[in-house]
């Protein structure tokens, strides 16, 4: 029986090619746009993750801290906040500053090394956001061995805002495209049912259930949407290749993202088709 539904769907697609082409082209256009946005979001997220991985907290130590106290602090930091803690003593800190400034005369004007020793803490992944980093910094700051804590708060906050804005943008774009998919599928199904009204009426008179009449139309909509999604992914891939060849290396969507994209499109088309059929069959069937 399921094969029968697929054959019916194929028959309908063949008989209403114009309608099917229009639907597939409109859906492909909308989905390609959303695919490009998805590609952009994916690459920006990759970049943000790369930058995020470099986020660290610098814990400046009091000059009076002994080695035992320092080791105790390192153990506590590793337990609570970090995945890796690197000790930078006063001399190393001075050398790093010298390398950065490069102006020997200016450095020689300073009599003694004023820089404190520090611990550079590579934070746990769950702490790589502004709020968590700020909380962690405030907690560490009260440890007796600690002089001060720096983590580039403003920079981290802006980075987080950028990531959040991007995710919101992706959601809005996704929602807009979802509405477009529902709109296109809904109207295509309505037009297809109207075009096949005599057939629907005859089937209804022969005692066909709504499910029996609707199944081929639903399959047809899902096939159209799946085809449009695959075409859109192909176009996005072609765009990515062209961009990479001419501008800069970008990463294509991971297989899981592409599969989720295809699945979401097919699911939306199923919903839109069911919605359209629940209304239109009541109007068409005798």
């Amino acid at each position: 029986m399921h094969l029968f539904y697929f054959r019916e769907a194929w028959r309908s697609l063949k008989h209403h090619r114009g309608l099917a082409y229009t639907a597939i082209v409109s859906l492909t256009a909308a989905l390609t746009l959303s695919g490009v946005f998805l590609l952009l979001a994916h690459n920006v997220e990759l970049a943000l993750r790369l930058v995020g991985d470099r986020r660290e907290m610098v814990v400046y130590l009091r000059d009076s801290v002994t080695k035992e106290q320092r080791d105790g602090l390192v153990a506590r930091l590793l337990q609570l906040y970090g995945t890796e803690v690197t000790y930078v003593n006063k001399d190393q800190a001075w050398k790093e500053l010298s390398d950065q400034i490069g102006d020997r005369e200016l450095l020689e004007a300073v009599d003694t090394n004023p820089l404190p020793a520090s611990l550079r803490v590579k934070l746990k992944p769950e702490l790589l956001n502004y709020r968590a980093m700020d909380d962690a910094a405030r907690q560490v700051r009260v440890f007796p061995e600690v002089e001060d804590v720096r983590y580039g708060g403003e920079w981290v906050r802006r980075l987080d805002e950028l990531g959040l804005g991007l995710r919101r943008g992706a959601m809005i774009a996704g929602l807009t495209v979802a509405i477009a998919i529902v709109f296109v599928i809904y109207n295509t199904i309505r037009l297809t049912v109207m075009a096949r009204r005599p057939q629907v009426e005859i089937m209804s008179r022969l005692g066909a259930t709504d499910r029996f009449i609707a199944a081929p139309f639903v399959i047809e909509a899902m096939l159209q949407a799946a085809l449009a999604a695959l075409l859109a992914l192909g176009l996005v891939f072609a765009l990515e290749r062209a961009f990479e060849a001419r501008v800069v290396a970008v990463s294509f969507l991971p297989v899981t993202w592409a599969a989720a994209f295809l699945g979401a499109v097919v699911l939306l088309s199923w919903m839109a088709a069911m919605l359209a059929l629940s209304r239109v069959l009541r109007a068409v069937g005798p």
Binding site: Q199, I202, S204, R205, L206, G207, A208, T209, D210, R282
Partner: peptide, 24 residues
């Protein structure tokens, strides 16, 4: 209901003046 109506119609055989055959 719509499903009962469909069930009723499946117990009948209906012949129309204009045949109502599917031309495709």
């Amino acid at each position: 209901s719509r499903s009962q109506r469909a069930l009723l119609r499946r117990t009948l055989g209906v012949i129309y003046e204009d045949f109502r055959l599917l031309n495709d």
